[in-house]
Amino acid sequence: MNLADNVAIRLAVACVAFAIALNTAPVKADSGFPFGMLMTMEAQPQPGSKRIPNIEIGDNGEAVLELWCKAAKGQFSVAGNTVIFVAGAMEDRGCPQPKAQADDDLLSALGEVTAWKRQGDLVSFIGSKTLRFRINTN
């Protein structure tokens, strides 16, 4: 075997090893809008409760929100990093006034959102205030 054949074989082995490494490397987190996912708001529970708001966004932008006390539906429309949220029907569950007000404020803030960004499992909705949600990965 001559030197050129030896180099060619080593190069071929290196290429195969590189290709295998690419196929087994961990997949980088998706950076797209979280359609089809459930997210939990980064917030502390209200006094006397363990509940934290979450949003489940369907494949077409339809949303189901479990708020501090109430439940709501809505629709996300996304174009690039621009987002619009339109609130739909809200289910009033006889909430105490502070929780009901917190729910109303959260829905209002979502309605004022104009942009979004995603960094791994963290999604930020940006408007009059920034709302941060973590994608549930379990």
Rank of each mutant, 00 (worst) to 15 (best):
A8P: 03
D92L: 11
E62M: 07
I9S: 12
I20N: 04
E66W: 00
N60G: 02
A8L: 08
Q75F: 10
N136Y: 04
F133R: 00
I52L: 11
A71R: 13
P45W: 03
N138L: 06
Q75I: 11
N54E: 13
K50D: 14
L22K: 03
R51D: 15
P98H: 01
K129Q: 14
N81A: 15
N138C: 07
G111N: 02
P98A: 02
N6A: 12
K117V: 13
R132M: 14
E42L: 11
G94T: 01
K70M: 13
L131N: 05
E42S: 12
A79R: 07
R93W: 03
F18I: 14
N60R: 07
V83T: 03
K50S: 12
Q46L: 14
P45S: 01
D92A: 08
G58T: 00
V86Y: 03
R93Y: 04
D59A: 09
N54A: 11
D30Q: 07
T130N: 08
L110Y: 01
D105C: 05
A12Q: 12
R10W: 06
L122I: 11
L110Q: 07
T24F: 04
K99T: 10
A89S: 10
V113I: 06
K50V: 11
V123L: 09
R118S: 08
G58A: 05
R132T: 07
G36M: 03
A8K: 10
A29D: 14
K70I: 11
A17M: 15
N23S: 14
M41G: 02
N138F: 07
A17D: 10
I52K: 05
I57F: 02
L110R: 01
E42F: 05
I9W: 08
D30P: 01
L106C: 11
G48A: 03
D30F: 02
V78W: 00
A12G: 12
V113T: 09
I57E: 10
D104K: 06
R134Q: 15
V123G: 06
V13E: 14
A12H: 09
A8G: 06
N138E: 13
F133Y: 01
D104H: 05
A79H: 12
F85L: 12
E62T: 00
K129T: 12
A89F: 10
G94M: 12
A100W: 04
A109Q: 13
E42D: 15
I84P: 01
Q44G: 04
Q101H: 00
A43V: 10
K117L: 14
G80R: 08
L67S: 09
F85I: 10
C15L: 15
I57M: 14
L106A: 13
Q75G: 11
F125Y: 08
K70P: 00
A4C: 07
A115E: 15
L67A: 02
V16Q: 12
A71Q: 12
L131V: 10
D103W: 00
I20Q: 10
G88R: 01
N2C: 10
N2Y: 06
K70H: 02
E42R: 07
G74R: 00
